[in-house]
């Protein structure tokens, strides 16, 4: 099997076999994380652009580490220090970076569909490192890798996602990936963050239910994905921070409702004491640091698949277009 796309823009168009193939390709790179010498020469002489139009620390460093361990060089663009502030459009910025002849374009942007838009204009592979509320494919893949390592396989799991689902590209990528393996989803959070329309976002036939009591959501869960609460989105009178903690925080007591051995994931960064208690975040069921280690291996696999021999016989981008069209004028992170 080969990876048939030129880019990695979303997990939605990928089949279960293709997703399994990418996860399998991450395995040799997991081994390399354990080597005393972690640096390969596989992508020597190649350059990866890391264009983060929206701020990120973990994902950017993870891609930078992945590129470096494969022997590639990186070019960094960060929102706060870029010409975006001077009014350059997204396309102009992408074209200018591309004119420096990189071999791969990794980008994050606050607008859904931005990576897809750039991919239509560039001839090099584009990796979506998060676009608005659309998808975050490398996070979806590293979460699946972590689940598969801990629980043995991805088939028919009960997956509970807690928090602000409506704004979460991580939740969407998780659902598009795990849904293809027959997983059932329970989405839970305050009603403003868990609208009923979310029940239709998965692959056809995926059971997704929205519930508003955390006790109900945790019952029989195999995997619990806790999302970061963006405290700026919590405000009175709708919901105070204390109310959120009282109603939705994942704590030791509530964990007893899930299956014994249920796995806890969090895409980070964690708000300790808000969406999750320190005891649960640091407990034996939590895999948050494994997610970070697996993130480097997953991103090495993605860069390897897109950049090795990618020039011949690769298809143009076939990825499904997101519904939201990006504004062509770039804007600083929001």
């Amino acid at each position: 099997m080969t990876y048939r796309f030129r880019d990695l823009l979303a997990l939605e168009p990928l089949s279960a076999d293709e997703l399994t193939f990418i996860l399998d390709q991450a395995k040799p790179f997991q081994e390399i994380q354990r080597h005393p010498l972690k640096k390969l020469a596989t992508l020597r002489g190649k350059t990866v652009v890391l264009a983060f139009f929206e701020n990120s620390t973990r994902t950017r460093l993870s891609f930078a580490t992945a590129a470096s361990r494969l022997g590639a060089d990186t070019m960094n663009l960060q929102a706060e220090a870029s010409s975006l502030k001077k009014g350059e459009t997204l396309l102009d910025t992408a074209n200018n970076l591309n004119a420096m002849r990189p071999d791969c374009f990794v980008m994050r942007h606050a607008s859904s569909g931005a990576a897809d838009f750039v991919a239509r204009h560039l001839e090099i592979p584009v990796v979506n490192a998060g676009d608005g509320t659309h998808e975050h494919p490398s996070q979806g893949l590293l979460d699946a890798l972590t689940i598969r390592d801990r629980l043995g396989n991805l088939n028919n799991l009960n997956v509970t996602i807690l928090g602000d689902i409506s704004h979460s590209r991580v939740a969407r990528s998780n659902i598009h990936l795990l849904g293809k393996f027959g997983c059932r989803f329970t989405l839970c959070g305050p009603a403003m963050w868990v609208p009923r329309e979310l029940e239709k976002i998965g692959p056809a036939g995926t059971p997704i239910r929205c519930v508003y009591r955390v006790e109900e959501a945790l019952e029989d869960a195999d995997v619990i994905i806790v999302l970061r609460v963006q405290t700026e989105r919590l405000h009175e009178p709708s919901l105070s921070q204390n109310d959120y903690i009282l109603l939705y925080q994942l704590n030791t007591e509530r964990m007893k409702l899930a299956k014994p051995g249920a796995l806890i994931l969090h895409p980070g960064p964690i708000n300790r004491g808000i969406e999750i208690t320190p005891e649960v975040a640091d407990g034996p069921q939590s895999a948050v640091l494994e997610q970070v280690t697996n993130g480097v291996a997953t991103r090495m696999a993605i860069l390897y698949l897109l950049m090795v021999g990618a020039t011949e016989g690769a298809h143009p981008a076939l990825e499904a277009k997101p519904e939201v069209t990006p504004k062509e004028s770039a804007h600083a992170s929001d």
Binding site: M1, Q25, I32, A41, A301, V308, E312
Partner: peptide, 22 residues
């Protein structure tokens, strides 16, 4: 030992050489 990642002719081998575990 899987030597795929260490080859000097990787781009000529195939569109994508499938990696195995060492």
């Amino acid at each position: 030992l899987d030597i795929t990642l260490y080859r000097d002719d990787l781009s000529k081998v195939a569109p994508q050489a499938v990696l195995q575990s060492s």
